[in-house]
Simulated scan of single mutants.
Amino acid sequence: SKCLENTRVRIQESILDHLEKREYRFIWLRGSPGTGKTAISMSVASTLAKQHRLAASFFWDK
């Protein structure tokens, strides 16, 4: 599941800006359970896929 529209916009923009730089090709998103890491990463992956910039994505599940 992705982020709801107009939520977590600043963190998504921050991640996408970070990935614009060629020397930064990976993001390690961490935090407590239930804080929205999966939603943020799914939203960012979706944005990158639409831009034809996503090479791969993977997620852990219990």
Rank of each mutant, 00 (worst) to 15 (best):
S1P: 09
S1D: 10
S1F: 13
S1Y: 14
K2M: 12
K2A: 08
C3N: 15
C3E: 14
L4P: 03
L4S: 10
E5A: 12
E5Q: 12
N6D: 14
T7L: 13
T7V: 07
T7I: 09
T7Q: 14
R8E: 11
R8S: 11
V9S: 04
V9W: 02
V9R: 07
V9N: 10
R10Y: 11
R10K: 12
R10A: 15
R10C: 06
R10Q: 15
I11F: 09
I11M: 15
I11H: 05
I11P: 04
Q12D: 02
Q12M: 13
Q12Y: 05
Q12P: 01
Q12R: 09
E13D: 15
E13T: 12
E13W: 06
E13L: 14
S14E: 13
S14A: 11
I15E: 09
I15N: 07
L16M: 10
L16H: 02
D17N: 14
L19C: 10
L19K: 08
L19D: 07
K21P: 01
K21E: 15
R22Q: 14
E23N: 11
Y24C: 13
R25Y: 06
R25L: 06
R25Q: 13
I27N: 08
I27S: 05
W28N: 05
W28M: 10
W28D: 06
L29I: 08
L29Y: 12
R30P: 01
G31V: 01
G31K: 03
S32W: 04
S32T: 10
P33S: 15
G34P: 07
G34E: 11
G34Y: 11
G34K: 13
T35N: 14
T35Q: 13
T35F: 13
T35V: 15
T35A: 10
G36T: 02
K37H: 04
K37W: 02
K37N: 06
T38V: 03
T38W: 00
T38N: 06
T38L: 03
T38Q: 04
A39I: 00
I40K: 02
I40Q: 03
S41C: 08
S41L: 09
M42A: 15
M42D: 07
M42V: 05
S43Y: 01
S43F: 00
V44K: 00
A45M: 00
A45R: 00
A45G: 00
A45L: 00
S46P: 01
T47K: 14
L48T: 01
L48W: 00
L48Q: 01
L48I: 00
L48D: 01
L48E: 02
A49T: 02
K50E: 07
K50N: 14
K50C: 06
K50G: 05
K50D: 12
Q51R: 15
H52Q: 08
R53N: 11
L54E: 07
L54F: 08
L54M: 05
L54P: 04
L54A: 05
A55N: 10
A55T: 04
A56V: 05
A56R: 13
A56W: 09
S57T: 07
S57C: 12
F59K: 09
F59S: 08
F59V: 10
W60L: 15
D61P: 02
K62A: 14
K62G: 11
K62H: 06
